[in-house]
Write a protein that binds this DNA or RNA. Structure first.
Length: 670
DNA sequence: AGTCGCAATATTTTT
DNA sequence: TATTGCGACT
């Protein structure tokens, strides 16, 4: 065979060279998941399978891209032409576009999450109240709708999970409230579906839903599409939701599934991911086999001991007891701080130490946090100490307001029926708010073509830049970069005004980046639909030069699949692992938080630093201190470090139960 | 009636 | 730190 196959251990080789029909590989963290997928791809290619008949799917763009990149790097000799790694969403998008006769969708506009929210806002109107006179939150409506689509649960169930899954309300009260308000939500959702239809919008969920439903219902179509592939390799299987399962079920017959995942790393429950179905894979999928990978190559045993301990505290049994191939190493540090600046300062000091004293690279250091917000102070310290960094996670550049502002006129050119784009674009200009914008849209949306729209706009008493912008870019359909430059030329003055107090200078630089990215696309229409699904700019927020060595600051979610010699996990304190919200949401959410922390801990290869507030053992409430993950931490698992400022507070450390009493109880003030 | 500016506020996580 | 809500002004 070749080197790649020889370097596998027995378990990995068994998986990579599997010759049965379907296989589910249950792989613990760091056990060579990606390596096994690559070896599988390589094995298939060597056995004569054409690259175009192998489909590689993953849940996130990052992991999909990474796998293909690594395959291409590792198999540089072989023909990997046509081998693609996609997200479920981009794959479905492609199927819909390439098979218009099957899926009957043409000339649609794909809308992203923000647009979807705008749609619902439009439908809900201002200050919509429910039967109990609470304001209906648009975000909640979106989440409920999406949860229904992705998991096939009933509206009531979705409402219960998103709205109410809250420990202090009695079940009866919750059920009553749901029954009372259900019609309101049902109505909004129906209106949304009608609205999307009218405007020819598809949202993310529609992409999966259309493909899944049509393939399920139509045997001919199913046969036709599934015969395009021989092998489907699915990474991060634990993040797959019921809708995606249904989608895959259409391929059981004609394709071989090769799925890889780790139940202990399932952290997308909020999107309907259902890791438990991984355990039942052999029951759900006919003709399937299971295979485990248990030997960890990434970390030292001390790091795994702590990670294993964390899972063992759970009431769920994950049956994970990772063993380090590399053997013994350094004990993880548990660093205590008094305030978050001290934490950020210490992290960046340790990074400098790694680079200066141990001659490591910046990229050997990774800082992990539950939320993007939690990285802020560390980012500030990186800037101060001139440490180059890249941030992963959170909303990327394409989500940011100024980019969407500039993209809005381009969207209008691509499809002048795009009401949401009109709304955004028109409201940029002085004197035009929601009401006037709607009025103007009423004038233009039913015109026969774009020229007539622009002509109509010129006749209205509104800022002339509106028609000017559209006119300037209307013949640049096939020169996207130029179109952006032109739109910017007309709009710059206004944008500068809007963002003058909000780092206009750095936003201005983003526009140049946008132009650069646009060079790769052929038409505005293509650019618009492509950037919704795959905003290529998501990780370009850098504090250094282009390909310069850099530290990675990442949310835990975005760090899945990554690893680094030194990992710093921020703020593993009482109020944040698990968060108050998760505690309120009950057992399932708490377990998801636990898995989140598990993912973070298992990223480290050599050195792991876990940070926490020195006051962590004191909690606001009993339930909080009881569920805190590091509560009964075995002291042998970590080495305790107390930062100088926190030392002052160390005496107040109290590990026992906190009892609330009324200190005025003994007095009579009546 | 509609827009704009200011003050208050609440922060997961991703396609 | 970005968004939202409210009140004042056109």
């Amino acid at each position: 065979m070749n080197d790649l196959q020889d370097n596998l251990n027995a378990e990995q080789r068994l998986a990579a060279q599997f010759t049965g029909k379907h296989l589910m590989v249950l792989a613990g963290a760091g056990t060579g998941k990606t390596r096994t997928i690559i070896a599988r791809a390589s094995f298939l290619l060597s056995s004569g399978v054409s690259p175009s008949r192998i489909l590689i799917l993953s849940f996130t763009r990052k992991s999909a891209r990474e796998i293909v990149e690594r395959i291409k790097a590792d198999l540089s000799g072989k023909s990997t032409e046509g081998l693609k790694g996609q997200t479920f969403h981009s794959w479905c998008m492609e199927l819909i576009q390439q098979n218009r006769n099957i899926f009957s969708q043409s000339d649609f506009t794909l809308i992203d999450e923000d647009d979807r929210e705008s749609c619902f806002k439009l439908i809900c109107g201002k200050n919509l109240k429910d039967k109990e006179n609470h304001t209906v939150k648009v975000k909640n409506v979106v989440d409920i709708y999406s949860y229904c689509i992705n998991t096939s649960v009933s509206l009531s169930t979705a409402m219960r999970i998103i709205l109410f899954d809250n420990a202090d309300m009695s079940d009866k009260v919750v059920t009553e409230s749901i029954e009372k308000n259900k019609p309101i939500y049902a109505d909004l959702i129906r209106k949304y579906i009608v609205y999307k239809n009218k405007r020819r919008y598809l949202d993310y969920d529609d992409l999966l839903l259309i493909v899944a439903r049509i393939l399920k219902a139509n045997a001919g179509a199913r046969d036709f599409v599934s015969k395009k592939y021989d092998h489907i390799l699915v990474d991060e299987m634990q993040d797959t939701n019921p809708l995606q399962y249904q989608l895959l079920s259409s391929f059981y017959e004609n394709c071989h599934l090769f799925c890889v995942g780790d139940d202990a790393q399932s952290i997308y429950g909020f999107r309907g991911a259902d890791f438990k179905s991984m355990h039942h894979f052999t029951e759900i999928v006919p003709d399937s086999t299971q295979q485990k990978l248990t030997l960890n190559y990434r970390s030292t045993q001390e790091i795994l001991d702590l990670s294993n301990w964390l899972l063992k505290q759970s009431s769920l049994s994950y049956e994970k007891d990772l063993v380090a191939f590399r053997g013994k190493g350094l004990i993880p540090l548990l660093v205590h701080w008094e305030n978050e600046w001290e934490e950020a300062n210490d992290v960046t000091d340790r990074i400098i130490e790694s680079v200066m004293k141990r001659n490591e690279l910046y990229i050997d250091n990774m800082v992990l946090s539950r939320s993007v917000w939690g990285l802020k102070k560390t980012e500030a310290c990186c800037i101060k100490k001139k440490i180059p960094y890249t941030i992963f996670g959170g909303s990327g550049l394409m989500q940011s307001r100024h980019i969407r502002d500039l993209a809005a006129p381009l969207r209008i050119i691509a499809n002048f029926h795009d009401e949401l784009a009109w709304m955004r674009f028109l409201m940029l200009w002085p004197g035009i708010g929601e009401v006037t914008a709607s009025k103007i849209i009423g004038y233009v949306i039913d015109k026969a073509n774009l020229e007539e729209c622009i002509y109509t706009l010129m006749g209205l008493n509104i800022p002339k830049e509106i028609s000017e912008t559209l006119l300037a870019i209307s013949d640049l359909q096939y020169n996207v970069s130029e179109a952006i430059a032109e739109a910017l030329r007309v709009m710059e003055k206004r944008l500068a005004e809007i963002y003058k107090d909000n780092n206009w200078e750095s936003r201005k630089n983003d526009f140049e980046l946008l132009q650069e990215v646009a060079l790769d696309t052929v038409s505005i229409a293509e650019f618009v639909s492509e950037y919704v699904l795959d905003p290529k700019l998501e990780t370009t927020r850098k504090g250094g030069g282009k390909d310069e060595d850099h530290v990675i600051l990442s949310t835990i979610h975005s760090a899945k699949g990554l690893e680094a010699k030194n990992c710093y996990v921020l703020n593993v304190s009482t109020f944040s692992f698990p968060s108050k919200k998760a505690i309120l949401n009950g057992e399932e959410s708490i377990e998801e938080e636990r898995r989140c922390l598990y993912v973070a801990l298992t990223r480290a290869k050599d050195r792991l630093c876990v940070y926490r507030d020195i006051h962590s053992v004191h909690a606001d409430s009993k339930i909080q201190s009881e569920s805190y993950f590091l509560n009964s931490l075995d002291e042998k698992l970590v080495q305790k470090v107390v930062l100088p400022h926190a030392q002052y507070f160390e005496d107040t450390f109290y590990g026992g139960e906190k009892i609330d009493i009324d200190i005025y109880d003994d007095f009579d003030f009546s």
